[in-house]
Simulated assay, not measured.
Amino acid sequence: MVHALVIGGTGFVGRHAVAELREHGYEVTAFSRGQSEVPFTDEAVTHLRGDRTDERELADAAQAADPDVVVDCAAFHPGEVRTATRLFADADAYVYVSSGAAYAEEEIPKREGETSLHDCAAEEARNASAATYGPRKAAGDRAVFDAADEGVRAMSVRPSNVYGPHDYSGYLDYWIDRVEHCDRVLVPGDGTNIWHRAYVEDVASALRIVAERGAPGEAYNVADRRATTLGRLVEQVAAAVGTEIERVYAGPYELDAVDVDPGEFPYYRDEPHLLATEKLAALGWESTPLRDALEATIAEYRESERDGSDHGPDRQAANRLRQRVTSR
């Protein structure tokens, strides 16, 4: 039986990667700090506690697991990628979870090997702020490429904005909550904004497929094969919930009048963010139909205690904005 080590295996993407690997016959070890509840009952999943930023603890995990495949869901600094590719240099595959945020250019779509990546200064590589996230992920990609040049079977997977069951970000939770509690749902702009999303189970299958069939030194984008606008997403959430809503669009004039920035709404982005996925699809990967992905996400949301209140504009400001828009 092939043995996989999932670093960050109890996190959002990690837990789905563990499930995907188990469903395809892998023996799996999940390595994490143990701050999240271990979601596995499968006897073929071993959990090792440790801090991947501590080289000695990661080395101990490498020795204990002796994996054939490594899926790295918790590398947020390029130095961590360099350490991992060195420790797992003899593995059959090392797959680094990068991000679509690694791309520096606002091209439509963003393509692997064509669209330029962010530069990453030494200070940015050590920083942990949101502003340096993209540069740090890009530097991690370069560490993967360097390792591949030295003979390591290292590859990168670049997801766009990931959603799905157990998503701690709460971005989609906001829209589910609005759809379930409002007849009229505010959407910023004209609803045609596109921020490409990736269903988490599709990300997990991409990680497995790249480990099995990917080429060393290559990066693979992963996102829904059919991208949707924000307005269309809200409509599809309503259909999956089983309700009817009216989408109410708020333009710059209305937003400015109540001092609401459109970026406060989850999934809003001024520039379209679209990733090409043909390269991954050529390996045999497919994405889940959006309706199925939303239904699974909504079912888990309803079982959780989340309500989406961590995101979006202030509710009082949103109510004033709704009244202003609907009174036009």
Rank of each mutant, 00 (worst) to 15 (best):
R328N: 12
F265K: 07
E295L: 09
E20S: 09
H77L: 10
Y94H: 04
M155N: 01
T288V: 05
V38T: 13
R111T: 11
E27R: 15
E286D: 11
G164S: 00
S116Q: 14
A59W: 06
P262Q: 05
A84E: 12
D190V: 13
N127C: 14
E218M: 10
A204H: 04
E246C: 08
E271Q: 15
G134W: 04
G214Q: 03
A227E: 12
I7V: 14
E201Q: 15
G25L: 10
R315L: 08
A74M: 05
V28M: 07
A317V: 12
E305D: 11
W285F: 09
A282Q: 06
T228C: 13
A102K: 04
L21Y: 06
G100C: 02
D68R: 07
P109S: 09
A318P: 01
C73K: 01
R306H: 05
V13Q: 11
S116Y: 10
W195F: 13
V237I: 15
L117E: 02
A128G: 15
A143R: 04
R33P: 07
R22F: 06
M155V: 03
A61D: 11
L280T: 03
R22E: 02
A257T: 14
A154G: 04
S36R: 15
T243E: 03
V69C: 02
D307L: 06
R111N: 00
V71I: 15
E55K: 07
E218K: 12
D261V: 11
D292F: 01
R226D: 13
F31P: 05
N319C: 07
E271D: 14
R184A: 15
Y168F: 15
Y168H: 14
Y26G: 03
V95N: 02
G308R: 02
V210M: 03
A276E: 14
V13W: 06
D202M: 10
A89E: 13
L172C: 02
S304F: 05
E212S: 09
A223P: 03
A93N: 03
N319S: 14
P216Q: 02
D60W: 06
A59Y: 07
K137L: 09
H3R: 15
S287R: 05
V38E: 09
M155F: 06
A65N: 04
R291M: 09
E27A: 14
R111A: 01
N319K: 13
E23R: 15
A125I: 07
Y26W: 10
L321C: 05
Y220E: 05
D66R: 13
A44V: 13
T46L: 15
I7F: 00
Q316W: 12
A65M: 10
R126F: 09
G170W: 03
L172M: 11
V237T: 04
T297L: 00
V69A: 01
A238S: 09
P252H: 01
A293S: 07
S129P: 12
T46W: 11
E218Y: 10
T326H: 08
G25E: 10
V258T: 08
R33F: 10
R197N: 07
D146W: 08
A121L: 14
K110I: 07
P159V: 11
R328H: 14
